[in-house]
Design a protein around this nucleic acid. Sequence first.
DNA 1: ATGTGTTCCTGTCCGC
DNA 2: TGCGGACAGGAACACA
Length: 283
Amino acid sequence: MPELPEVETVRRGLVPAMEGEVIAKAELRRLDLRHPAPPDLANRIMGQRIERIGRRSKYLLFDLSSGETMILHLGMSGRILVSGQATAGFTHDLATPEKHDHLLITMANGTRITFNDARRFGSLDLVATKDTTEHWLLKGIGPEPLGNDFNAEYLAAKLARKASPVKAVLLDQAVIAGLGNIYVSEALFRAHILPDRIANRVTKNEVPLLTTSIRDVLLEAIDAGGSSLRDHRQTDGELGYFQKSHAVYGRQGEPCRTPGCAGVIQRIVQSGRSSFFCAICQS
DNA sequence: ATGTGTTCCTGTCCGC
DNA sequence: TGCGGACAGGAACACA
């Protein structure tokens, strides 16, 4: 999935096409996503103006003039495409729905927006805007890593109480919002911490660097237009560029990029998911 | 109460 | 070229 930077990139691509515009037509083609979508979702968003497109963690939030908010999660393979934007390197005729196009929207200005998600780990829901933060999917989520509530003191307190590997703690959305498998590996590399270190063994001295590493890696990825391994596309169909600058993710067997380091990037599996690290740079 | 493993679903890639 | 297996950005849930 799209992790936080990819979702933010998608959001920024949607704002000029949708914010302040009215949804003229909507068609929900499948209800059986990760969580069942409301059967009347299309009817409830049709005719509404999109007042604002926000983001909480990896969720996109579409505030509608009706007083409802559409909550959209991209899951692992979800993407949103916008007609009229360049589609270099990716052809998807939005006029003809493809197999995994689940939600089709036509704005009053003619722009078409398509939510496509082959694996259907994504989800769609509608909630009263005032109740958004209390929605069951959102209410347990921890602070935004780019916001003021996320800082070294907070993170140190969380890590100190956890007996699981630091990798697992950083992936826990209740601890920090928006981190996923790629950026956890990248942030831990920058912080010189091995992913299988037990969280409460991360020293107080190490936490500030870990905190800034998380923030920096996310900001750089957003600046670069989001990362990508295979499925992620920006809304204009372009691949994100940040993948070129992954220091460790997906680079097992390749040389460490730290100047002067003779290390080779290694891959381990932790609770079923790959972690990447340099055993020389990280301990 | 916590921590770990499994599971949902489809697509792609790699080795034989 | 076909085929089987490994693996993929998430996260809720079942179980120890």
